[in-house]
Design a protein around this nucleic acid. Structure first.
Length: 221
DNA sequence: GCCCAGGTGGGTA
DNA sequence: TACCCACATGGG
């Protein structure tokens, strides 16, 4: 398993190169993006983030003060905008009451503790928590998303029904706890998933993972 | 017109 | 634990 996971990484990196994740100017913006991107394409998130910046709503204080409906109006492209406005308020509320709005204090926690704290916040599930830990705090916690699950299933390394933590453990037990590696690996899996594994009839012979994947089995979501 | 995006929370069995 | 559903825009 270890050599397989490393092989996959090298193949994807060779094919796609560095992905320069996470898009976001500040750690706070990464957190906002992590919530807004739930079940939404990143291009939609960019529009929402741009709107929030234009309205001077890209700060804990501003979001705390603004009415939920006001925030919702500017993040409409991200679907579930009412839900997500509520989530943004929840994160900011958590930040301010527990850490005085200071991300540095929050990020000073040990990785496992930081993850657990984030998970307790309304709107932050496992993937979002790991995204924040990895991409905003810069601590090694592997991010597992739908693409990761699909690709590993297709490669027959998992059944696809494993719980999140099981799949995360697979990566973390077999790779060094390297932030840059986790960063790039997750981003590459998303890139590959979008580019190939969502296609109904991928050209498997031209795939970067050709030979690792038991093609031409039809891919199942 | 239909499918589906870098999910999460709440409810039920 | 394992499903189910609500959430409710915009691009291909």
């Amino acid at each position: 398993m270890r050599s397989r996971l490393i092989e996959i990484y090298h193949r994807l990196y060779a094919a796609y190169g560095p992905q320069h994740w996470w898009p976001g100017e500040t750690p706070f913006e990464v957190i906002i993006g992590a919530i807004l991107t739930q079940q939404v394409s990143w291009t939609s998130v960019e529009r929402a983030i741009t709107a929030l910046k234009q309205e001077r709503l890209m700060s804990p204080d501003a979001i705390a003060r603004a009415p939920q409906e006001h925030i919702a109006a500017f993040i409409r492209p991200t679907i579930y905008y009412n839900e997500k406005a509520k989530k943004l308020k929840a994160v900011v509320e958590f930040l301010q009451t527990r850490y005085g709005g200071d991300l540095t204090a929050l990020f000073a926690l040990p990785t496992a503790r930081l993850r657990a704290e984030l998970l307790a916040v309304h709107g932050i599930g496992e993937e979002t928590a790991d995204s924040i830990v990895l991409y905003a705090a810069g601590k090694p916690s592997f991010v597992v998303d739908a693409y990761t699950r699909r690709i590993l299933t297709r490669l027959e390394l998992i059944t696809g029904n494993e719980p999140y933590r099981r799949i995360q453990k697979l990566f973390m037990d077999n790779l060094p706890p390297d932030v840059e590696l986790y960063n790039e690996y997750h981003a590459l899996l998303v890139r590959h998933g979008k580019e190939r594994c969502l296609k109904r009839t991928p050209r498997c012979d031209a795939c970067p993972l050709h030979g690792l994947c038991p093609f031409p089995r039809q891919y199942r979501r």
